[in-house]
Simulated scan of single mutants.
Amino acid sequence: MSSDSLPIPDDLVQPVPISSTTFFLTAALIWSTLFYTKNPLQYYLKYVTYALIVIVVATFTIFLCLLRPCDARNVAVVAKVLSFFFQIFQIDIQLENSKYFQSKEPFILVCNHQSSLDFLTMMKVWPGGNCTPLAKKELFYSGPFGLAIWLCGITFIDRLNPQKARGTIDKLAKKINDENLRVWIYPEGTRSPSTNLLPFKKGAFHLAIQAQIPIICVVTSSYSNFYHKREKKFDFGGKVKVRVLPPFNTTGMTLDSVAQLTKHLQDLMQREFDLLNKEIGLDQKYYIKAKSNEETNEKTHDVTRTFVQDLDYTQISDVTQMNSLISQTDLTSQLQNDSNNNSVTEDDTGKKVN
């Protein structure tokens, strides 16, 4: 019999089984390579990873919050967990003036809204305490995430029904003082990746005046240098500057001043946004200026604060002194004041930033 006709043992033709450990190690290696190296799939992989982290943490949050359902303090715990996992994106978030969150009184926090990555900066900046974001009602129906944020005590608002929205604001105004609540609001109402803030909706400012509590503006620099949805860019080494502005006290103001206050604080945040983008070296190709605002931008490009600078907050060491000084100031006349001063803030190390 020739060697060609010899039978092949069965154990030689069977496929070699791959252990689950080998499979997961291989998958992890491929994921890590695509995640951390520049390639066409990096944007999608990083964004999917970001979404999966949020969904997984939200699922565990549901069970955690059953011990303390619908309590706004739950968010502080979730913020710490998410901030830990978000470190894999290697985004350097620099927070300035966090001392303004140390107030024991309730306040409204307003922040510019750029993209879904705002959740990343929100969790890093989270002011702590009894704080709740104001979110659109549609988020409640977003699966585990919607259920989790409801259990975290998030306040939902129906943007499509003005009457219900006003009712929500009225109830929240009473709840703020009764429960010493802080409320985080994105006054633009929708995401804007450009360097022009969208027109602010008045709800946040109406709420602050109705509750007679301060407004704290938080301005986040553009993400465009490392993240851009249209360009499918999600790079490493991103840098974000977040600047907390001194509280603006609304004590004594009436609802007649809502429009004026809204415009003033939007101008204030736009100027700080422009400054922050300069400081991080934002690529000029991302600067988008609306024609209707060109003249205003030319006049205010190098102007930083009006109301807050007149009070010289750099000499104030704590929030109590700050509120005392604000209460002695004529708010209406300060709103109309357009004096030109250079912005001076402090980072969390106490170092002055010009």
Rank of each mutant, 00 (worst) to 15 (best):
N293S: 15
T300V: 05
T345A: 09
N342A: 15
S327M: 07
D348R: 07
I316R: 01
L311D: 02
N342L: 15
T306P: 04
H301C: 11
D318K: 01
Y313C: 01
T320P: 01
Q336G: 01
D318E: 03
E295G: 06
Q309A: 09
Q315Y: 05
V319M: 00
T304Y: 03
D310S: 07
K299T: 02
S324D: 08
S327Q: 13
Q328R: 14
T345R: 05
N293Y: 12
F307A: 12
K299V: 02
K299I: 03
M322S: 03
E295C: 08
D347F: 06
N340K: 14
D310Q: 09
T300Q: 13
Q328A: 13
T306F: 04
N297H: 15
L311E: 08
S327P: 08
T296P: 00
D347A: 09
K299Q: 12
T329P: 01
N341Y: 13
L311K: 06
M322P: 01
T329H: 09
T306K: 02
D310W: 04
N337C: 08
D347G: 10
Q336I: 05
S339K: 14
Q315L: 12
T300K: 11
N340I: 14
L325N: 01
K351N: 07
M322G: 01
F307T: 06
I326M: 09
T320D: 08
T349W: 07
S292G: 13
D338I: 08
Q328S: 11
D330T: 06
E298P: 01
L325I: 06
T349P: 02
L311F: 06
L335F: 11
N337K: 12
D338F: 11
S317Y: 03
Q328C: 07
K351M: 09
Q309G: 08
T304F: 01
D310T: 07
D348S: 07
Y313I: 03
E295D: 12
I316A: 04
S324T: 06
N323G: 02
Q328G: 06
T332M: 14
T306N: 12
L325Q: 02
L335E: 06
D348P: 08
D312T: 10
Q309S: 11
K351E: 12
N340W: 13
L331H: 04
E295A: 10
V303F: 05
T320W: 02
N293L: 15
L331W: 01
N297T: 14
Q334T: 05
E294V: 15
N323W: 00
L331F: 05
Q321E: 11
V319F: 00
D312S: 09
T320I: 00
S317F: 04
I326P: 00
D312M: 09
T329S: 13
Q334D: 06
T345E: 06
E346K: 12
V308A: 09
T332P: 00
M322T: 03
M322Y: 00
G350P: 05
F307V: 13
F307K: 05
V344W: 13
Q315F: 03
D318G: 00
N340M: 14
L325K: 03
D330E: 07
L311T: 01
D302V: 02
F307C: 10
Q334I: 02
Q336S: 07
T320A: 04
K351D: 07
D310Y: 06
V344A: 10
D312N: 14
S339E: 14
S324Y: 04
N340S: 15
T306V: 02
T345P: 04
Y313S: 03
Q309K: 11
V303G: 07
F307Y: 09
Q334W: 07
S333Q: 05
D310N: 10
S324C: 09
K351R: 10
